[in-house]
Amino acid sequence: MRASLFIACFNDIFFPQTGRAVVSLLRRLGVEIAFDARQTCCGQMHANSGYRPEAWHQAERFLRLYTEADHVVIPSTSCTAMIREQYPALFAAFGSESQKRELAALLPRVSEFSEFLIDKLGSADVGAYFPHRVAYHASCHGLRALRLGDRPYQLLAKVRGLELVELPNTERCCGFGGTFAVNNAEVSSAMLTAKLQDVLSTRAEICTALDNSCLMHLGGALHRQYAGMTVMHLAEILVRTETSFAEAAS
């Protein structure tokens, strides 16, 4: 199987290790990976901030780059949700008839990372080993827009050595919300504090998720508070094996 990787702009800059983990893991599972360096950003920040024409440029670019792809894999729930939920309206407003048709044909081939593993590859067990206590934060977009359901839990359940702890109030937003975190910084922080209370109550070592934007928010506060807990994208957990741990130790 061939898959094209879409690495969101901030994953590219801030969290390159997530993309590397996805590449490495998917290759382990026999997937041939392509990365088109002409990609930049899905346009989510612009669309959600009310800058539609600006978002449209990104949407059009996405379609142009991936219209021929067999599969597009995106290790970010909110970017995937942007493409699935908002692109149709953007193309309806600004696109041509043929673009609308191309988008409709492309969307079923666009998968969020855990969707790709479970739905397209049919593999919940990816052969991972990760001997740590982990809590999973179900990002709003993963939970409600993409309806990932138990996919991430299926994946986590098969990781050898991993102790999964339940995160209370997992459906509640962490307060990031893109520019909301800056424009409504105090309310965002109050929401974050409520979320941290739940996250810390798990006494996990690591809080994982399928979206680095939530993790940047949670991780930023955990770091600020010397909370002794770190964050990590699920792909970075799934890529670990007994061998990679041995390599890291040597």
């Binding site: 690495i7 801030f14 290790q17 590397r20 910084a185 930023g220 506060a221």
Partner: peptide, 22 residues
């Protein structure tokens, strides 16, 4: 940006972005 760092740190940028690594 100070609105972010009033309650949260921000990870520094790794020397190599994903596209550079690729």
């Amino acid at each position: 940006g100070g609105k972010w760092t009033q309650t949260r740190d921000l990870p520094g940028l790794p020397p190599q972005s994903f596209r550079m690594w690729w």
